[in-house]
Every structure is written in structure tokens, then in C-alpha cells.
């Protein structure tokens, strides 16, 4: 097992229009888009939403295979949704398989569910593919900051994400080292039943956890020594700034939202 191959997030570095957008713009766009995906009732509405997503994919200049890779984990989920919809929706039967029938209505519902799921995952992947985790964290913090008086721990969440980003590679390295040390003493992580392999991981997890707690303790001390006293009164070196590209994106988003809502309200999409 090569733990070094594990990457954090799936950021695809680049300099496309989408890459250059402010993370806040992209976060809000994804939020809007995921609502818009569930609005249409008829074909023109779906066409609009799908076209918008595809144009965004084209603008990101991320190879399509990276975007499709994001769909892999939801394949089983999608298959189940499609099958359930196809077989369990009452209506005019098209095929009969034993006691079960695929209905015309079911087929339509399956297609709708599949399209929605794919669009949802693709738009979310676009966000993480075109935004570095660090910028994403900054964007989230800034967007949540107005909610802080309501008890949303914006700064704390962002700090936790930053520390996670910082320490994941360190902990992966450590896990790798511990596993090699155990293998050198005859541990076997590769063969045997699933249960046995899971059991074999216990001697890896225990020292890893102990070390992680020690790290956390030392990090807290180091942060205190550098004057950390919570989020209040803190400033940031890197300020997020909207540019012309963001303003254009907002305009397009507003038009898009109006169009989707309009189609729905007038009963045409």
C-alpha cells in the first residue's frame, strides 16, 4: 500500500476563467446551481441547467475525465435510484420482468433523477477542481463571518480546515512509517480476510492516535506562544477581492436564475 499517493482534495491547478474567480463567487454559484437543478419540471428547464453546467465545465479547462472521475463514487447510489424509480413507479407498464414491471412514468423519473444527480456532482466537483483548498477555506470563512453573531463558528471552522490541510500529509507520512515498521516486524496488511486485515490495522492506529494527540498539544502551545487568542481582533494577510470576472459571473448567475425560475413559474420548463 502506498499512502504517499493519497492526495488531499482534487484541486486541478490552472488559470482558467473559473480558476480566477473569487472562491466566494464560486461557492455561491454552486449553491444557486444546486437549487436550480431541482427546479425544472419539463425538458426546456433541464436543457438550460445542463447547458449552463456544460459551459462551466468547458470554461474550467479541466479535462473531462477528471470531472467524470468525481462521478465514480456515486455510481452505485445512482444505479439504485434509477432501478427503484423505474420499477416502483406505478403507471403504464412497458416491460414485464416476472412480477415486476418497468413503467413509462418510472423511466422518466429515473432519467430525471440521474440527470439531477450527475449535474449536482459535476457542479460540486467543478468547485473543488478549480479552487485550491486554502482559498476554499478563506472563502468559506468570509461567507460565514456575517453569521458569527448567530453562533456560527466561522473562524474556528476555517482554522480547523487549515490545520487539517496542514497535518493530513504529516499524518499520512507517519502512518506509512508506522506500517513499514510493523511490516519489518512481520505484520501483514495485505492478505487474509477483511476482518483480519482490519484487525491488523489496530497496531497502526493506536500509535498514530497517540502521536496525533501529542501533536495537537504541542501545536496548541506553539499557537499560544505566537499570540493566538481566538478569532476576535484577528486580521488576515491575504484579503479576498472581487474582480471584473466576478462581477460578470454574478450578472450571468442572476440571468440564469431568472431564466430557470421564469420557466418554472410560467409552466414551460
Amino acid at each position: 500500500m502506498n499512502l504517499q499517493a493519497v492526495t488531499i482534495g482534487q484541486y486541478f491547478p490552472g488559470d482558467s476563467y473559473l480558476h480566477r474567480l473569487d472562491p466566494r463567487t464560486k461557492l455561491i454559484a454552486v449553491l444557486l446551481l444546486s437549487v436550480a437543478i431541482f427546479l425544472p419540471r419539463y425538458f426546456p428547464g433541464y436543457l438550460l441547467v445542463a447547458l449552463f453546467t456544460m459551459i462551466a465545465v468547458a470554461l474550467s479547462r479541466v479535462p473531462v475525465k477528471f470531472i467524470l472521475r468525481g462521478l465514480k463514487p456515486i455510481m452505485i447510489f445512482m444505479a439504485i435510484t434509477v432501478l427503484f424509480n423505474a420499477f416502483l413507479t406505478p403507471g403504464e407498464p412497458l416491460f414485464q420482468i416476472g412480477r415486476w414491471a418497468i413503467t413509462r412514468e418510472g423511466l422518466v423519473l429515473s432519467a430525471v433523477a440521474a440527470v439531477r444527480l450527475v449535474l449536482l456532482v459535476v457542479s460540486a466537483s467543478l468547485l473543488t477542481l478549480t479552487t485550491s483548498p486554502i482559498l476554499l477555506t478563506d472563502g468559506l470563512e468570509r461567507l460565514l463571518r456575517p453569521l458569527a453573531p448567530l453562533g456560527v463558528p466561522a473562524h474556528e471552522l476555517a482554522l480547523m480546515m487549515t490545520i487539517a490541510l496542514r497535518f493530513i500529509p504529516t499524518l499520512v507520512e507517519e502512518a506509512d512509517r508506522i506500517m513499514r515498521a510493523q511490516e519489518a516486524r512481520g505484520a501483514d496488511f495485505r492478505s487474509g480476510s477483511l476482518i483480519n486485515r482490519a484487525k491488523g490495522l489496530i497496531p497502526v492506529m493506536v500509535p498514530l492516535f497517540v502521536a496525533a494527540f501529542r501533536r495537537a498539544d504541542e501545536l496548541a502551545t506553539a499557537m499560544e506562544a505566537r499570540g493566538y487568542r481566538g478569532g476576535t481582533g484577528r486580521t488576515k494577510m491575504k484579503q479576498l477581492a472581487f474582480s471584473g470576472a466576478d462581477y460578470r459571473a454574478w450578472a450571468i448567475l442572476v440571468l440564469f436564475t431568472v431564466a430557470v425560475v421564469g420557466l418554472r413559474v410560467t409552466g414551460r420548463g
Binding site: 496542514r166 493566538y228 488576515k236
Partner: peptide, 19 residues
């Protein structure tokens, strides 16, 4: 390892003055 907070060098150095 246990005293660097941020995932980028310059952001870590900025941690103190940001505080």
C-alpha cells in the same frame, strides 16, 4: 512539524501578526 499551523509557508509566518 508541530509548530507550523498553516498549509503554506508564508501564511504560517503571517499567523503571529494576524493574531
Amino acid at each position: 512539524d508541530n509548530q507550523i499551523v498553516a498549509a503554506v509557508v508564508e501564511e504560517d509566518v503571517a499567523f503571529g501578526p494576524e493574531n
